[in-house]
Design a protein around this nucleic acid. Sequence first.
RNA 1: GGAGAGGUGCCAGAGUGGCCGAAUGGGACGGUCUCGAAAACCGUUUGGCGCGUUUCGCGCCACGUGGGUUCGACUCCCACCCUCUCCGCCA
Length: 424
Amino acid sequence: MLQVQVLREETNRVIEGLKKRHFKDAELLVNEAIEIDKNRREIQKQADDLKAKSNSDSKKIGELMKGGKADEANILKGQVALDKEHIKKSEGSLAEFEKRLQEILYKIPNVPHPNVPAGKAAEDNATVYEHGSVPILHAAALPHWELIKKYDIIDFDLGVKITGAGFPVYKGKGAKLQRALINFFLTEAELAGYTEIQPPIMVNEASGYGTGQLPDKEGQMYFVNEDGLYLIPTAEVPITNLYRDVIVPEETLPIKNAGYTPCFRREAGSWGAHVRGLNRLHQFDKVEVVQIAKAEDSYKILEEMALHVQGLLEKLELPYRKLLLCGGDMGFNSAMTYDMEVFSAAQQRWLEVSSVSNFETFQANRLKLRYKNKEGKTQLLHTLNGSALALPRIVAAILENNQTEDGIKIPEALRRYTGFDWIK
RNA sequence: GGAGAGGUGCCAGAGUGGCCGAAUGGGACGGUCUCGAAAACCGUUUGGCGCGUUUCGCGCCACGUGGGUUCGACUCCCACCCUCUCCGCCA
């Protein structure tokens, strides 16, 4: 959520930025917010003045009563009662304005960074880096959903039996490969200076609001009705919310946390050939990295985080490209996002395996995540996060790209974690 | 699930109707002392919003949340949320 103050003071920058997203009602909503805010402030001034008056009158009444001047006190009481009615009215409309302002602010996405390319959709994203070459597969090469059957390492039908579609069962070397990847990603994160966090995978409503899943994306999360808890769609939610309502000491910045969690996504309504196999699931595993930084450091850190993810892909010997997302393709909360896509050789398509974003103060504003600067002023911090990495598509790419007639070869860097070199 | 206790500032903790944005202790920060440090002593230390003559002044709000009583609520009443302890169940 953007701050009204920013809308007020940097109206043009905000509107121009939002246009880059092809966000339809940018001008309309921003101006409406500013207008409502103006009314809100006028009413607050009126109410505050009236409250100041009745506060001091109440004090006088106390003094008069003590001095035995009950008559004078009673006259004043009548006066205060009258003022109270007016205050109540003002407060009513103040609350109304605040509610409407909030509703509008929830609808306005983050303002893209100036370096974000213009563009409407995925094809307008800028490819800023490419690495590795596409492997040439043997004639009988299979897509991963065939490979997992051939080697009996992941079973979708069993998942359907015990839970439903999109909940695969990993077996034998398939299960061990999961564990190895998680371990590899966490170890690499630790080496990069991240503190490992193991958070709950259910969160309360306040956390959902904190990172922006609520109120809009409610239907995308699994909800445990009995206890009012949400299954997390990503570790970003619990790990970022650790710092909700916190004023962090300046010397601890930047804060670097990493965590492995299963992730749950309802993904209502997305079906079809391109979501086959491991491409899209309701439950999957992911290691997430999260940083909290001062405004002046956040873009340097965004680059650092992207490079960390690139390093992982290079160690796994996967060909990838790095995209700088265009305004039209960015997520609602983000000011700048890099996507990493891995080439899946048997499917002959790029698969998104990581998304690294700087949210600037967009999340911090809702989270009330701040620090005190040198002048003693509290300031909002910047939040950043990235997948490092999401497992299923990495598994798909490893299986497809590394298949030979003799089996699937495990990348060198991963072998000390798997304990085996081949899936045969 | 049953019974009880409780939610106050960075932490602990007092406060049962106006003198309370809040005692006291601890922590942190600054200063005095010291070659330096410790101790001691002195001082500072919640956040949000609004207005103005905007490194400062004034006002409003907040003692879990929302309502109520009252001229006046941390204090009284109602509802809700959360935490802790004991019992039960349990990996």
